[in-house]
Design a protein around this nucleic acid. Structure first.
Lengths: 114, 114
DNA sequence: CAGTATCCGTTACGATACTG
DNA sequence: CAGTATCGTAACGGATACTG
C-alpha cells in the first residue's frame, strides 16, 4: 500500500473521513449549489461557522480533492472555491440526503401534531 | 412550532444530526445489510467501537426513529436491532455513499501509482 | 448477552483579535 | 477580502471494570 492512501478501508470510511465533520456536507452543498463561491459569501451562507473552522474545513476538503481553490492573486484578494470532479460526483448524493432530511422532518412534524 | 421538532432547519441539518457521528453511518449500514442484528454481533461488525459508544449511538439512532430496538425479554437477554421505516428509506442513500467512497478510493489509488 | 458506570484524553469547535 | 494566530471550551470518543 502506498503512503498517501488511507489504508483502503471500505467506502463508508472514506466518505466519513471527508464529510464526517459538523459543517463539511453543508459547505459542499453550498459550493455545489452556487457553482463557485468566494470565502466571505460562503461564510454568510453557512450560518454560524467561524473563520477558523471554515478555513480548516476548506483546507481539508481541498486536500481530499473534493473542492478546488482558485486564487486570482489580485488585490484585494479574490479566491473562489468550486467542486472538483470528485466533489461534483458526490454532490447529487448530498442533494438526496437533503431531500431525505426534508421529507423525514416534514413527516415527523406532521405525526407530532397531536 | 411544536416542542419536539428540531426547529425545522433544512434537510442537511436533520441528516447531520442523525449521521454526524463517527460510527452512525457504519452502524446503520451494518444493521441494514443484515436486516436485523444483535448487540454483540453488531459490535463485532463495527470494528473498533466500544461498548459505551455503541450503546450511545444505538440510543441516539433509536431516538431519531431510524432504528428499532426489539427486546425479547429472555434470559440470557436477547435484543435485536433493525431499521425503522425512516432508516430503511435512508439506507439506499448510504449504500450510494459507500459506492462513491469505494469508487473514489480506487480511482485515487490508481492515480497515485507513480 | 446486553448492556452500565466511571473516568479520562483528544479533538473538533468556537470567539476574538489581528494581518497581508 | 481572505484569511491567520491564539487561546479556551465542550462534546465526542474510548478503555476498563462491573452488573442484571
Amino acid at each position: 500500500m502506498h503512503p498517501t492512501s488511507i489504508a483502503t478501508a471500505d467506502g463508508i470510511t472514506k466518505v466519513l473521513a471527508v464529510i464526517g465533520g459538523k459543517w463539511r456536507i453543508n459547505i459542499i452543498w453550498c459550493i455545489g449549489r452556487k457553482g463557485s463561491i468566494r470565502y466571505n459569501e460562503l461564510k454568510r451562507q453557512v450560518t454560524g461557522i467561524s473563520n477558523t473552522v471554515l478555513t480548516r474545513s476548506l483546507e481539508d476538503l481541498a486536500s481530499h480533492q473534493l473542492i478546488e481553490r482558485i486564487d486570482y492573486h489580485e488585490s484585494p484578494p479574490r479566491v473562489e472555491y468550486r467542486l472538483s470532479v470528485d466533489g461534483l460526483s458526490l454532490f447529487p448524493l448530498i442533494e438526496q440526503l437533503d431531500c431525505w432530511g426534508t421529507a423525514t422532518c416534514a413527516k415527523n412534524d406532521a405525526n407530532e401534531q397531536y
